[in-house]
Simulated scan of single mutants.
Amino acid sequence: MLNPTHLRTLETVCRTGSFAVAARELGYTASGVSQQMAALERACGLVLFEREAHGIRPTAAADQLVERTGRVLAVLGEFEDEVRDLAAGRVGRLRLGSFPTASVRLVPAALAALATDHPAAEILLEEGEPRELAPMLVNGELDAALLYEYGHVPQRWPEDLVMVPLLHEALLLLTRRRRPADTGEATARLPAMRTENWIASREGTDGAISLERLCAAAGFAPAITRRSNNYDVVRQLVGAGLGVAVVPALGHIPDERVHAQAVDSAPAHRRVLMAYRRANVNPLLQPALRAIRAAVPRNRPWLAPPQG
């Protein structure tokens, strides 16, 4: 393969007609230029110069090579510009994973900010639960992912993942509001709910396991009559008087039919984290982390900065 540096030197030598003049212009020694041209002749199998006692004369082959070199170097220059853009994160691709609640509350603002700051970059979104997303991070299918961890369901994340805490959210007890102006107490005590019908997420999910453990700590097993992983559906069921539920704060939208209270229990929380592979050097990774952090709600009830 021909060396682009040698081709650039050839252009200068042919233009100046001298190894010495070309060397001064390029910052090489005359010997260095001579060695480059000899290497180029060997690489392309052509005689490029007639070497005379008082100088050099480019051959017809050299002139033809220079004509073609201009096009090659122009394309190479564009390629080098693209590589610099890639290294700076101005272009490229980032594959982001997210769980559904974060996809609604955090991801849109973050992606909008990334699109503004990196308009030529491609940001792909894959949605799933943490147990689905974490292996995709380890396997290199994702560059980063938003994950969660319930206080009553601690996780052991793969060792080669960097875990960045983003948010600490309370778990909220949702009950049907009895009177429009009824606000009740700020916190909820689960033992008072032992006789209620419960609405939970799908069996075996971290949310369902968290509910079972919270109720067990309160001294009862919840009577789960309905299940849904969609918090909008859960809220509608609660508002219709079909049961009570515990949901993370990010999953709750105020509803005049629903009364929300933070569960009065220290482990009644969920941590939101952003994870990425320790060895990942994607230039878009840190801009994405900054955009996600900027999208985290500030000064909102039941939401707090990461703890510990």
Rank of each mutant, 00 (worst) to 15 (best):
A266F: 13
G97E: 05
L190D: 02
E212I: 04
G32M: 04
Q36C: 06
G219I: 03
P58N: 13
D255W: 01
D117Y: 08
V258Y: 04
D160Q: 11
A88S: 08
L167V: 07
L211H: 10
A88N: 14
H269K: 07
A102S: 15
H269Y: 15
A87E: 14
T116V: 14
A181L: 12
S34K: 08
P287L: 07
L190H: 08
P108C: 11
G17V: 01
D182F: 12
A294M: 12
W302T: 09
W302K: 04
L284M: 03
Y150P: 01
A266N: 10
N3M: 13
G32F: 10
E256P: 05
G32Q: 04
T12Q: 15
D160T: 14
T183V: 08
A43M: 08
E129G: 03
M37K: 12
A62R: 02
T9L: 06
A43I: 01
L48I: 11
A262H: 05
E141F: 01
S34V: 09
V238E: 03
N299L: 15
E50P: 00
A295R: 14
G89K: 04
E129C: 03
R226N: 05
F49K: 00
S228R: 04
Q286M: 15
C14V: 15
A74M: 03
A134N: 00
E169R: 10
L166E: 05
D264C: 01
H54L: 15
L167W: 03
L111S: 04
G27L: 02
R15I: 07
P119E: 04
G92A: 09
P301D: 00
R213D: 09
Q64S: 10
A144Y: 15
P130E: 07
G27H: 11
A291S: 08
A30M: 08
L146F: 06
A121G: 09
A245E: 09
G32A: 06
R213E: 11
E141Y: 07
N299W: 00
